[in-house]
Design a protein around this nucleic acid. Structure first.
Lengths: 346, 346
DNA sequence: CTGAAAGCGCTTACAG
DNA sequence: CTGAAAGCGCTTACAG
């Protein structure tokens, strides 16, 4: 590879052809390995490629093939929160592995300003990638709207509004929430309250619905307090409200692990023992879940699998197969730790 | 934007020109805003763009401009470790912000298999991006070699071998290690040992050199134990060795926070109090640093600043300015917590 | 098995 | 201020 350190011009397919004594069309055929190329010609081309240090120009190839073989993984979430959330990281890892296996290169793009949102939308719509995977947790996002509206092949990582037609992959938040609520009830609790997640997050409502469904006739709206953000403090405050409104509570279903951790702080401050007096369950199986004492019984989502499925669906569509529509549910499971009390029958 | 849901063909600049009653060259000029375009013509073009829902094809533009205005941030590190390491995440965030501000789109690419390594090298060498930022912590990496050897504009995030000419940005590990060693000594320690990092990591040697330099005549090779990996267990084992070889130790400089945490486990097991009997210091200011008891006195690196500078250097080069060569040092600082004892004079 | 030719969708001197 | 023309570096039918 004695590439000329000339730096004036990168070698092109024409340089290779000239050196190999053939046409550039034949070099192209050799490179793409579809058509047959005579043994001797192939050898000459191979030799020439090494001598000039040729690397095909991706841009030129993409232009004629109308495909870059790349897929964007767009992070529409505060960058620090994205990196701090193990579920999101795992989603990216799962998607990357699946795309990689299919021969696509995943490009992780982080939206961090309004201008970057515009830039990314323009890139994606402009054919810089063949499709996009999108992580956007908030409703009515313009990035989602602008991409979906432009007909870009797209899969999102969270259940969108009911009327939205953007394909998605997600855990069944309602069902998982019902499952963890049933788990808590199964430890012998009769008066189970809820710490409802922030109202602007769709998952808050889905998890609430599951909680209500699992309780059935036992549901009492007085036992619900809404947290205004996903934080320890918000969980603690909501728990205060809950205690004030229904001091006979013997269980709490929190919309996330952080909220559950905050709630436990409040319970301890009030001298209520967990799980003896009050059983607590969380959601997400985040690092918080093992840092509370006792550790949290919670819902584990297989985020890596979510990422994988998002990628698989997109790839199947790009390869001319499946139309991209509808949602897909990824199973989740209840993880038993100490905060709800011992698992019945275990 | 009543784009024809025909889907057969995306509108091109020619469609816009036709509708606007002008030539596509003029449309191009309008889009790039360099040359003047008559007011009336501009209006007609603008209107046409909206009517057909035109978005410029990035690939075509890149081909003629020989630039994609995109920069790769290549992660040559196990994906899970990359996401778990706050320093690396912050580096990515810092680089993303700086590139974004300069009008470049950062693309985070994760190497997760040998094939993906080849794919990424080919992409980068093939002009899919204008340059690359590279996070690769191990020596003699083929990805680094193949990119650097191909003349791709490149900046790495860690000091390379002395003979390597790849430009880098990094904290001065030797100096920082000397500083934290001096900090420990300043609490009145006379027999300070070291838990040396894994031998295959360049930083291990740099930090060792700083430790040796700070100790001067007080350095005793018998007080050094080498950890075989960056883990709690390895730190604990190395501490056992250290205790066996030099039981009169009153201080330990660990090459990282995890190693320090492991060392503290061993010390506690042997009934040595930290910091009363033995002072301990770490490196990295990672989450480990606040999870030990007492919390770790350690070295804080400004990873976000490192990422920012990597980006700035690359951008300056791409814009035709600075030649890309040499290294750049980012300052770090000692963070005092409890593990070394009280800060003298504080 | 191979070459000549057209074309992917843009930008950019060059004239006017 | 604008149009015609060339060209960026490839791929791909079409003939042979």
């Amino acid at each position: 590879m004695d590439q000329t350190r000339d730096a004036t011009r990168r070698p092109t397919i024409l340089d290779v052809a000239r050196l190999a004594g053939t046409s550039h069309a034949t070099v192209s055929r050799y490179l793409n390995g579809r058509s047959y190329v005579a043994r001797a010609t192939a050898d000459a081309i191979e030799d020439a490629i090494h001598r000039v240090g040729y690397v095909p120009n991706r841009t030129a190839r993409s232009l004629v093939q109308q495909s870059t073989q790349a897929v964007a993984f767009v992070v529409r979430e505060r960058p620090d929160l994205f990196f701090a959330d193990p579920n999101l990281s795992r989603m990216a890892i799962g998607a990357n592995a699946a795309l990689s296996a299919a021969g696509y290169q995943m490009l992780l793009l982080i939206v961090d300003t309004d201008e970057s949102a515009d830039r990314i939308v323009t890139l994606v719509r402009g054919g810089f990638v063949d499709g996009a995977l999108l992580v956007a947790m908030h409703e009515e996002d313009r990035v989602v709207a602008e991409l979906a509206g432009a007909g870009v092949p797209l899969v999102t990582a969270s259940t969108p509004l009911p009327d939205a037609s953007v394909p998605w992959v997600d855990t069944d938040n309602e069902e998982a929430s019902a499952a963890i609520t049933r788990a808590l009830v199964s430890t012998g609790r009769a008066r189970v309250g809820e710490i409802h997640g922030p109202r602007d997050a769709p998952v808050s409502h889905q998890r609430h619905d599951g909680y209500v469904r699992a309780l059935g006739a036992g549901f009492d709206p007085a036992r619900v307090a809404v947290a205004d953000e996903w934080s320890l403090g918000a969980g603690a405050r909501a728990m205060e409200e809950l205690l004030a409104a229904a001091s006979d509570l013997d269980g709490v279903v929190a919309a996330s692990d952080v909220l559950a951790a905050g709630a436990m702080d409040t319970l301890h401050r009030h001298g209520r023992r967990v799980p003896d007096d009050v059983g607590v369950v969380g959601f997400d199986d985040s690092p918080w879940a093992t840092q509370t004492s006792p550790a949290l019984t919670t819902v584990h989502q297989d985020a890596q699998e979510t990422g994988r499925r998002m990628a698989v669906r997109l790839v199947e569509h790009l390869r001319g197969g499946a139309p991209l529509e509808g949602g897909e549910v990824v199973p989740s499971r209840v993880v038993w730790r100490g905060s709800a009390g011992p698992r019945p029958g275990a």
